[in-house]
């Protein structure tokens, strides 16, 4: 699975993207976020308040109960501020 991080999630985590193999117990977006929180200080800091984290799977917005598949592109980012 490809993971992408944008804006302050990228700067806090320290990388823009990575390729990961999901543990079998991680089946949806919510479980992915909880699993990522345990991967180090940068992840814990970036993901401490999930109310300001938005998630897109395959470039479309999803909710935290969205089911994940192995080839998904998952992006984590703050609420958008374009225009």
């Amino acid at each position: 699975m490809k993971l992408l991080y944008f804006a302050w999630l990228r700067t806090k985590i320290g990388i823009a993207e990575e390729q990961i193999d999901l543990p079998p117990e991680v089946r949806d977006v919510g479980a992915l976020l909880r699993w990522l929180q345990g991967r180090g200080a940068g992840f814990a800091e970036a993901l401490k308040d999930l109310s300001v984290v938005r998630v897109a799977v395959n470039q479309d917005y999803v909710k935290f109960d969205h089911k994940l598949r192995p080839g998904d592109e998952v992006a984590l980012f703050p609420p958008v501020t374009g225009g």
Binding site: A7, V80, T81, G82
Partner: peptide, 9 residues
């Protein structure tokens, strides 16, 4: 656009 397009400033 301001609430849907993925841009950050």
């Amino acid at each position: 656009l301001k609430t849907q397009a993925p841009f950050w400033k």
